[in-house]
């Protein structure tokens, strides 16, 4: 009997975390798990389970579970373990079989770190320049660009480089 899916489609396919963890011996501690939505990245992204806690004491959500994992995201090994609780209900997880585990670690070892160099400043937007010239103010002809420096942001700004104001000044600099 073939299954006919009706209704809205979803980006997620796979199992919830508890569906995977609950069927494994020793709650799957030490096993590797990945998310299907991370397939969009070329670099390996996966979790290594460290500990599992039930959530019955917190709230009555059968699909949720608290899991502490080592996280590897886009080839970068996080220093601190990460807790997966709020997104554990998503049917997006996939267990990596034991014979493929070494393959993933090798991918991680062979993965070259992401690099991205962006220009440090742009020229003044035309209207802004006109306004400043009209007001006879002293102004520098360039604007410094502020690059995000979060945990997952790898972009480095090249201070010496100045690009004209336009819609695609990052385009040629991307290397990832």
């Amino acid at each position: 009997m073939s299954v006919k899916l009706i209704g809205r489609t979803s980006n997620l396919y796979g199992k919830t975390l508890w569906e995977i963890i609950g069927n494994l011996r020793d709650a799957g501690i030490g096993r590797l798990i990945t998310r299907n939505s991370y397939n969009r990245y070329d670099e390996p992204c996966f979790f290594r389970v460290l500990s599992v806690e039930p959530t019955a004491q917190i709230e009555n959500k059968l699909r949720k579970v608290i899991v502490h994992v080592e996280k590897i995201f886009r080839g970068k090994h996080y220093k601190e373990p990460v807790e997966i609780y709020r997104v554990s209900y998503k049917p997006d997880y996939r267990l990596i079989p034991k014979d493929e585990e070494q393959l993933w670690w090798d991918r991680l070892a062979n993965c070259k770190p992401r690099e991205k160099v962006v220009p440090g400043s742009i020229e003044l937007p035309p209207l802004m320049r006109l306004v400043l010239e009209r007001d006879n103010k002293e102004f520098s002809p360039t604007l410094p660009l502020i690059i995000r420096s979060g945990r997952d942001n790898v972009a480095q700004s090249d201070v010496t480089k100045i690009v004209p104001y336009g819609p695609s000044f990052f385009k040629n600099q991307q290397s990832s």
Partner: peptide, 10 residues
């Protein structure tokens, strides 16, 4: 990304 970064610096 370009738009966001430029607007941020402006």
């Amino acid at each position: 990304t370009t738009y966001r970064t430029s607007m941020k610096s402006i």
